[in-house]
């Protein structure tokens, strides 16, 4: 069985492609940095890859709203390719700016018909500013999300100015929650697992005052996953903010790699089916 291949998008201000590739490689995948235009212009086909990753960054400077311009480029130029990719059961992850892109394309939280209709948004943090700080997220054990299977909590950095998840239809929130789509939530690291709740936690436990403490969501199939914090930025144990206080038993690959390993394993399982 060969290692699953990951298309890691790059270009136009995406800037986390290096560490995203590292995280997937540590998880056992083979990674390829693909410029958005290589697909748009037909030099590359999405369907030649097993996993698609849209890394973080400032695509087009986040002018006109984070992720909007790249979202449009993908929606108008690659909408069909993305649809067939998802319909063929392959995992997609969008991290930070990549999450914003997927939300503005309408793929997240999404709908079973893949209509690409935007139903939620990621808007400016209540603090009004960009921040880099570490948070703790809890993952919903009952979610269909294939990316978060078996993970209870993770410590990860957030690095964004627009990460507050909102919608204009509260009924939708309930529906997504019921289906386990609100898969990642900010929690107080001191609390006992499970602790995720819908009451918005105080800043900075919730760094952006996201509705229901949402840090990440998946689509109804659980294949498409978007997350504001950066698990890929914690690919190695020495990247945690306080490892010198609590050194790991052994230095090396960090617990956050579990997210990427889940997708790799999912792809391998699918191949053997």
């Amino acid at each position: 069985m060969s290692a699953p291949s990951v298309a890691v998008l790059s270009g136009f201000g995406i800037n986390c492609e290096y560490e995203t590739m590292a995280a997937f490689e540590f998880a056992g995948a083979e990674t390829f940095k693909i410029h958005v235009n290589s697909i748009v212009r037909g030099h590359e086909k999405l369907l030649d890859y097993d996993i698609l990753a849209i890394p973080g960054g400032f695509s087009f400077g986040d002018h006109l709203g984070s992720g909007r311009l790249l979202g449009n480029r993908l929606r108008f130029s690659l909408g069909d390719q993305v649809k067939s990719f998802v319909n063929s059961g392959r995992p997609v992850i969008g991290i930070c700016n990549g999450f914003q892109v997927l939300v503005k394309m309408g793929l997240l939280p999404g709908d079973s018909g893949l209509t690409m209709t935007q139903t939620a948004s990621l808007t400016t943090n209540d603090s009004g500013k960009y921040e880099d700080r570490w948070v703790t997220i809890e993952l919903d054990a009952n979610s269909p999300c294939i990316w978060t299977r078996g993970i209870q909590r993770l410590r990860v950095p957030v690095r964004h100015g627009e990460g507050k998840f909102v919608t204009n239809d509260v009924n939708l929130m309930d529906k997504w929650e019921g289906r386990g789509q609100l898969v990642a939530r900010y929690v107080d690291p001191e609390s006992q697992y499970p602790a995720s709740s819908s009451d918005v936690l105080p800043y900075p436990t919730s760094p952006n005052q996201s509705w229901r403490n949402i840090a990440g969501v998946c689509d109804p199939t659980g294949l498409i996953f978007g997350i504001m914090p950066h698990p890929e930025a914690f690919h190695s144990t020495w990247l945690s903010p306080d490892w010198t206080r609590k050194p790991p038993k052994k230095h090396g690959i960090s617990p956050a790699i579990a997210i990427f390993r889940n997708a790799v394993e999912y792809s391998l399982e699918k191949e053997t089916e």
Binding site: Y130, D132, A233
Partner: peptide, 12 residues
């Protein structure tokens, strides 16, 4: 704090 100090995933 409003500078990104850990993009690239290398800041130890």
């Amino acid at each position: 704090r409003s500078y990104d100090h850990e993009v690239i995933g290398q800041t130890v």
